[in-house]
Design a protein around this nucleic acid. Structure first.
Length: 259
DNA sequence: ATGCCTCCCCGAGGGAGA
């Protein structure tokens, strides 16, 4: 089963680029972030026509997440638990039932800049709630994953120019420590299970020729429970599509799971 | 670089992103 995460930076601006990639890559499950659309504005028929079940959690203009799945989505839950006053659409989870059940959690973690400040406080608070949900998810001892745009550069090797990010919310020690605490609960960073060393990036800024200079960072991650990690067959970053017309600034990351 | 692009809104230029 091929499962991808992709921050598309606006579904309206990216519908063509996304369907092109879907037709080529043929993923079974896609976790989308930054749809920047309300649920009613999401072009679900584009994906239903391709055989996907669609679940969205959108809001006007900003954020927004969605799940596409070739197998039926069950028990869909929207919003990260832990703060009923949080109105930002950054979390959707569902169960996909194939030969066995897989719980997929799709997240768009707050950017947090400028740091310090209220946006950074929100990021760190959100990560505490994420840690609580991540801990909960492990107790089921089932195949499950947390995937999406984490907006965290886990280590210096995950940036082409690490020194440029040291005071940024994506790489500050508190951000990295919060990410590490979640992984250390017992998750496997799927990419790092298969690939070591620098040069594995998922985001290149639109500005200053970042793509041309390969000035990238790795901030889109797939974290696996032990039961999912045992079934990991492959991991890839589809970086080539960053060079196409009207690309997102992120590219898809996908895994192949034997489920 | 306190921002070199690009998105959103619905039609101007400002907020947000990373």
């Amino acid at each position: 089963m091929k499962i991808a995460t992709f921050n598309i930076n606006g579904i309206k601006a990216r519908a063509g680029a996304l369907t092109d990639w879907l037709d080529e890559a043929d993923p079974d499950i896609v976790l989308l972030q930054e749809i920047k659309s309300v649920d009613e504005g999401f072009p679900r028929e584009l994906f239903e026509d391709r055989g996907y079940d669609v679940a969205t959690h959108g809001q006007k203009s900003f954020n927004g997440v969605a799940i596409l799945s070739k197998l039926p989505l069950e028990d869909v839950r929207r919003g990260l638990p832990g703060d009923d006053d949080d109105e930002q659409a950054r979390w959707i989870e569902a169960t996909v039932v194939g030969e066995r059940a897989l719980r997929v959690c799709n997240l768009y973690l707050p950017n947090g800049n400028p740091a310090p400040g209220p946006k950074y406080d929100y990021k760190l608070a959100w990560m505490e709630r994420l840690q609580a949900r991540a801990a909960d998810l492990l107790t089921a001892e089932e195949p499950a994953l947390l995937a999406g745009d984490f907006n965290v550069i886990p280590q210096d090797e995950d940036a082409a120019r690490p020194e440029a990010w040291h005071k940024d919310a994506l790489a500050l020690p508190q951000s990295r420590a919060a990410f590490r605490r979640i992984v250390n609960l017992g998750y496997t960073d799927a990419l790092r299970a298969r690939m070591q060393g620098p040069g594995h990036y998922t985001f290149w800024d639109y500005q200053a020729g970042a793509w041309r200079r390969n000035d990238g960072i790795r901030i889109d991650h797939i974290l696996l429970t032990p039961q999912a990690a045992d079934r990991l067959r492959d991991v890839q970053i589809d970086s080539d599509i960053r060079g196409r017309e009207k690309p997102s600034d992120h590219v898809p990351v996908w895994i192949d799971l034997a489920v």
